[in-house]
Amino acid sequence: MSNPKPIIGVLALQGAVELHKAHIEACGAEYLAVKTPAHFAQVDAFILPGGESTTMLKLIERFNLWDSLAKEFSKKPVWGICAGSILMASKVISPAQKAFGLLPITIERNGYGRQLESCHVQILGYEVSFIRAPIITEISDDVEILSQYDNKPVWVQLGNKIASTFHPELNKQYPSPMHKYFVDLVRENA
């Protein structure tokens, strides 16, 4: 059974939330900014957006959201972008911090350096942005690499869990191929 109009929840504790709306709607799905357990239960899938992973992590713990999010993540598709990909990793370095362990990858925070190293690149012929981006430094054999840049995996998938270290949402050509890929996956999973 495929769900023609799934609800995609963007975790709205902090970060680049609203920019996903136009991309999600262009895929024919529904956008919802979510920050409480009542919201989490309503959505068919999650996007963990770009922002500051330390801030998000602290808010998740301070608002006691860890368990309810972990439970939802275990049964629904999740796509983490930049800071969101850090929250999904099984191991975070530089510095070490807690994560949900949704993907067997090791991720190095700000691996490419500071803002002066931020840049635009083409992935699948679509312009995306690396902003103080993390690097996926280790990856388990069962994780599929959807795209590489500079000989490093930048867009990876295992089952219904996807991580990208770049931002497609800053491009105003809707939808991005990455949003389309994710919404298609959500539809197939429903």
């Binding site: 970060g15 635009h120 312009e127 902003i131």
Partner: peptide
């Protein structure tokens, strides 16, 4: 790495960081 300037229709890399800083202190 890639380029610092963006094509039209893409939020530039400088404002991109500001977008990431939304909703915080």
């Amino acid at each position: 790495m890639g380029k610092n300037s963006s094509s039209s229709g893409v939020i530039n890399i400088k404002t991109g960081l500001a977008e990431m800083l939304k909703g915080g202190v």
